[in-house]
Design a protein around this nucleic acid. Structure first.
Lengths: 396, 396
DNA sequence: CGACTTTCTCCACTCTCAGGACAAAGACCT
DNA sequence: AGGTCTTTGTCCTGAGAGTGGAGAAAGTCG
């Protein structure tokens, strides 16, 4: 199950691997157009990469008016595992070296069951993907957890919503089980990396990626790099005060953004609305399902329920106010909204946009797109694969 | 007056120059300890730098148990000009290559008089410094302006408090007048660079530098680099909403931080307090000076005036609330408070600390110093000198 | 079939850089 | 005073990195 995975020997090789991964060039000549190396030097490095097996040359491309070029691509048997542990479910996917998803599984699961139970689940999902013939083994794995991570060590720290994970050696344990290198990061950062690799944020150097799910967090990308902060808690905006003397929050303060808008807050507000008889639509759904979640609110809103729409607008306004402050502060080139509640769609986006465009500086909002993520639940796993491939495609 | 200033020919030379500038090594051997080059290669590059005249070897150091080393230092006749244009005054200083201040002038001036008038003043101050024998000419100049800057071009954009400067080619104009390379940046960014070079933020990679003066802004340093945002307006936190439906602000919104706490807001609140008869101390100062400024509030507070202290605490609380959000978001390793109102000293700092430690995540505040800047009014000019020296000490 | 284009390979030459040998200059011990 | 050791700096050689030109390979097009 352990696979020998070569590493690039120098920065040139790393550059070439990443160019091939990120799609685009597929011949020596095209690579030469992008790397500013002489043809001779380029040929040497390509030959060395061919020797290591990290890339392969198979077949000839159609002529473009002269000699046909050799097709160069990353080894087709390379496999990365992307794992995205959410508060209430786990996503596991297999990708090839270009980070295209070959297989994807999703399983409901409560992260509070602790690392041992969750890992058992993750490993069985990975085994299932392997058994289906998508991979003989994994060359690397990336994993996202819903809380702050001490990045260099790959260890969660003081995660509020996942007791039992504090200090658990995620990287080491998973690496042992899978027999391959593993990198760990916050799930929101991975969503940002996913949207940067294959989504709306493609080739944007400075952007914010707000993930609204059970909790609420924000991936920060500055100069093309994820900013994690000194203790790995950067982007943890769920506990920024959104409403002075507002609702009490699990963290002990009042008025935190997360206490006013998140999957959990929305479900709670929907229950209150039913209790107060403000929405027959939601009441009907409660009666049918026995409980209410953000999905019910989204469905009610789609059916035109005024109360549900109000709840979403209200939450969007709160979130938009906080984001407006962050936009003034960070001056990003793009804001991406993602996570479980993107089902709330345009209503939510409109409320956020209104607040940001109204409250932030014109200079900061002048040319600022605020859009929904386009990868949905695959953003996290793609980001996870990208994380480990960035690591493996760097000089050892 | 134009001086020939050589530039390093490669990254090694750039590295050596910066090491020498930032103090520490002063011999070939000590340089060798820090740059991971063979002694031979190091000797070659040092010799080349000696040839260009950027560095000089003068005399021998005391022996440390063996052969005495040659003293190596940056050319002693290199001179940088640091200019810090504030809303109400201008600072101009001359530094040597190590960015030590050799002469410093400060002159009250209203930035709204426009770039032409201000430049006349700046040039006359620079001429005075030159005439006093501190410099024969300038090898480079850095200049900070109180508003957003399109950094690559060195041009202010849409500066709210400095009409008439929008689009004015500051870099080009000053470069023409002084006959040397010029770099332009926001004044707050330069304060951050100053504190990073020679102040409390020395060797801190991720920190925030909040400058409270006539307005309020925040320098953002991530990974040792200043984050300027896509339009150069990053750190403009004065118009983040601090009080819902609060005081009207010049920007058109209500409740902006700057409308509740800044030099201008403090003066206004002090006037109100006098009108309402809430402070005899402030009334006396108004009678004596004909007007009230933040300095009067500071003095009244130092004299124990309860109303003045309340104003400062109130402002500190507002500011602290905003900073608390930024700390949760950015997770810095240090927060520096600077600018004109640092005269408010410990009262202000205590209020800010209270809010941040109470409202931000424990993980983000666990080991987070919140301190006053230690360079005072020299931070800006040192940062300006640092900016241009970073530029000149990079390969051409 | 010849002229031209594109792709790739090979070769000679230059430059960078590391590391060892060694010289210079002093400290320290006997 | 003299020998030994340490520190600093210089010189030299050889291994690689890298460039650019010549030209071969393999195609298109008129």
């Amino acid at each position: 199950m352990r696979r020998m995975t070569a590493r690039p020997a120098n920065a040139h090789q790393a550059r070439l691997l990443k160019l091939l991964r990120d799609g685009g060039p597929n011949s020596r000549a095209q690579l030469g157009d992008q790397v500013d190396l002489s043809r001779s030097k380029l040929a040497v490095e390509v030959d060395r990469l061919l020797e290591t097996g990290l890339i392969v040359a198979d077949g000839l491309a159609a002529s473009r008016g002269g000699r046909r070029s050799h097709n160069i691509r990353l080894a087709p048997n390379l496999r990365f595992l992307g794992v995205d542990i959410g508060a209430t479910s786990v996503d596991v996917a297999v990708t090839n070296a270009e980070l295209e998803i070959l297989g994807h599984l999703n399983q409901p699961m409560d992260v509070r069951e602790g690392p041992v139970a969750v890992f058992e689940q993750v490993l069985s999902m990975a085994a299932k993907l392997r058994a289906s013939g998508l991979a003989e083994g994994f060359d690397g794995a990336g994993i996202g957890v819903p809380g702050p991570v001490r990045f260099p060590e790959g260890v969660p720290v003081a995660p509020p919503i996942m007791p039992g994970w504090d200090g658990f050696p995620v990287r080491e344990a998973l690496s042992q089980e899978l027999g391959c290198p593993v990198m760990v990061d916050n799930d929101v950062n991975l969503m940002a990396m996913g949207e940067m690799h294959a989504g709306v944020a493609h080739s944007v150097g400075d952007f914010l990626c707000v993930k609204i799910g059970t909790g609420i967090g924000c991936g920060i990308v500055a100069g093309g790099e994820v900013h994690r902060g000194v203790t790995g808690s950067a982007g943890d905006i769920g506990h920024i005060q959104a409403v002075p003397d507002g609702r009490p929050c699990a963290c002990g303060n009042r008025g935190c953004l997360e206490a006013h808008f998140s999957g959990a807050a929305l479900a709670r507000d929907a229950m209150e609305a039913v209790e107060q008889g403000r929405s027959e639509e939601l009441a009907a759904r409660l009666a049918a399902n026995g409980a209410l979640t953000a999905v019910d609110v989204a469905a009610a809103a789609a059916a035109g329920d005024a109360t549900a729409l109000d709840l979403i607008r209200e939450g969007g306004n709160r979130t938009g106010q906080v984001i407006a402050g962050l936009v003034s502060f960070f001056n990003p080139g793009l804001v991406v909204i993602g996570g479980g509640v993107t089902g709330l769609g345009h209503t939510l986006l409109a409320a956020i946009r209104t607040q940001v465009y109204r409250q932030s500086l014109p200079l900061a909002t002048g040319n600022l797109p605020i859009v929904l993520g386009e990868l949905g639940p695959t953003a996290g796993v793609i980001g996870a694969a990208r994380l480990i491939s960035d690591h493996l495609f760097s000089p050892a």
